[in-house]
Design a protein around this nucleic acid. Structure first.
Lengths: 222, 222, 222, 222
DNA sequence: GATGAATGAGGATTCATTCAT
DNA sequence: AATGAATGAATCCTCATTCAT
């Protein structure tokens, strides 16, 4: 029952596994159009499949959507878990931002997907929240609370601060098309992403760091 | 844009006229479920109307959606226009935040609606952008550029800063249900809104104000 | 809100009400093909309607099926109730058969429908049974028990006797097409129905009446 | 009709061969849900097989259905043929009933299947009728006609009588679930079957025997 | 002989929209 | 202005069947 064919190079390129390719396509369309706005048929077409074939891999649209969310969020959760478990060091927060921004920059659909879900009220977020979000947020809160860098915020502020950072980071990606239309810049270009990363680093220093702490010049220590 | 008929007594009776009530219902459902996820029939039912009757007031679903957006955004635009036209004063930015937060707090659907639209890629935002957004953003940029309070940001940072502020403010409302599920707090309660207003004021001081500028205690000068 | 038009004669002929015509068509097709074998589209087509229009009158296929059963069975139940309430007389049983056979002869679909349902396990029969069947059967049992004509059967036999009579009467109609194919006679023709009525009368005399009781010649006392 | 191959040891191992097990499962599901209501996939699942594997044994759903009918009906036909060929004796009719009831009691699906088919209009019954039914019915008619026990029925009554007996016997099984729901008795239990056999014997004596003929007590001569 | 994957056809149902009333 | 009824176009999904493995 071992895989009957040694997967050739071409196989690897094309056949990442039909189910994976379906999730790829679904991720893209769900992120662009939301759950209700995405037709199963369109997902299938994007994979070059008949709509009926989809049901050989997923029991239904809803489950496919959940698979998309699961696959997209799991690495994020793992990353956050790792980060919140690591000891604090002067550079930890910087690296965290760097990693998070890189992650969402590499997966532009993810932020949109998350935002879609959050807006939809998030029955699925709730489901995921139980498994991942709660512990991460808990650790995150704890990390922030004990962070020597955190100054000027009371304990009650911390949830708001977390939400604010979350909005700051994800908003850039989920609002990308609006951003582009207003300012005429492609926010997903290499240059724009680099600038945004730098911007976020400085913004977070201002937000999280000591309010009275002197901060270096833009991009000064990348 | 003034109402074409001088509202008579009978008008007032019929007022909160059917069309308005339709827009009310539509706003709520579009905000909750997005455009694709909202059935015309459901909007009508929420008004106590037959779906067919909707078409006596709006030519179609799309136009109704646009009417919702227009009605919701126009006051925002007007508010922003007023703000960006007013001369700078030490308290102007503070008042701006106060007004904006109050506005979105009073209309919880609005932020969700905007986010939905922005995520959808925003053909409608584009349409509105031409009429309102561009000038406002232009004035906003100009205001920021000349603001004595702005320190530590280069001109190139300003668009990112505007987007960041936008995400900060709107995210609180559009992510409210997620927020609630994670932290177990109702973000739309009076107390929570007051706290968020205070939080935003301090956060914006950190972001917009001089990074080295000393900032008062939480809630210190409400 | 009174009906805006005085229904003309032609109206009455044609527009027995769309819902009724839908139930007519559904009754026919359900009887011929069973529930699973009947396509909503075919029912609609038989009424000259688009499949979607059906849903303006019935919430779904299942409910339409139930409506068919309800409409078909209610008169039967009423008839049986009347019969089981009436006092026994030497001719009562004869009249009962006459009425029942006439009823099913006039509605050939009904017996097939009932048989289909009974074969399907009868979730719907259960539902109807609660409302009608139980009392009727109860009264029927009681009527049989006290009937002076009943001889040679113990109390324990009565349920079997009722089922047997039921199968005897309904089987003729539900098996009509098989009957026809085997014997080359149209069982729904006037002549055949008259003969079957006569046959049933004599058969029931043999079954229900005193086993030792002399019985007249075939058709002797119609 | 003897099995063309002398069943070898290996045959016996493979026996209750896959094809047979498929027909078993199909018989059950077709009897429960009818042809249209039964999914090939469900039949396969009941055998623990993939739907595609079915097509290694049967060319299609229709053919599988026919195989079920053939396998189920052949013994019945053989039994009836034997019976109609045997000389009349005082106990032949009794034995016939006994055999028939036993046969259907042992194969509860069979009666349901037959009824389903008969209700469906019976293209398949027609096909089988040509091969089996016609001769059997012919012999049955002839047997009845010459039976010394038959009194009180004219020749024209005989087809009706045959159908009546058919309905009487098969109805018990096909209506079993309805029967159970109404009277709260499991008609397929040992005790109930014994009672029904006894009941049928007496009922048929009344129907077929001389109407003036004295009949013994219930169960008197089993 | 078994199976995972693929698919065209169809099936129930929803939806936005129209129209006569 | 309101509505019941009608509908074409979609939508999600099931089904019987095929085929390469």
């Amino acid at each position: 029952m071992a895989s009957p064919k040694p997967a050739s190079a071409t196989d690897l390129e094309r056949r990442t596994g039909t189910a994976d390719r379906i999730v790829d396509a679904a991720e893209q369309l769900f992120a662009e159009r939301g759950f209700a706005g995405t037709a199963v048929r369109d997902i299938a077409a994007l994979v070059g499949l008949n709509a009926a074939s989809l049901y050989n891999h997923f029991p239904g649209k809803k489950e496919l959507y959940e698979a998309v969310l699961d696959r997209g969020l799991q690495p994020v959760f793992e990353m956050l878990t790792d980060l919140s478990n690591s000891d604090w060091s002067p550079s930890r927060d910087e690296r965290a931002i760097e990693m998070i921004v890189d992650h969402f920059a590499a997966q532009p659909n993810l932020a949109r997907l998350l935002h879609q879900e959050a807006l939809a009220g998030g029955d699925n977020i709730t489901r995921l929240a139980g498994r991942w979000l709660a512990p991460i947020v808990g650790q995150g809160l704890e990390a922030l609370r004990t962070s020597p860098a955190l100054e000027g915020w009371s304990d009650d502020d911390l949830p708001l601060l977390i939400m604010a950072l979350h909005n700051l980071v994800l908003g850039y990606f989920s609002m990308a098309s609006l951003h582009e239309k207003i300012f005429g810049i492609d926010p997903m270009s290499e240059a724009a992403l680099a600038r945004q990363k730098d911007f976020l680093r400085r913004a977070m220093r201002r937000l999280v760091g000591s309010p009275a702490h002197p901060v270096g010049k833009p991009g000064g220590d990348t």
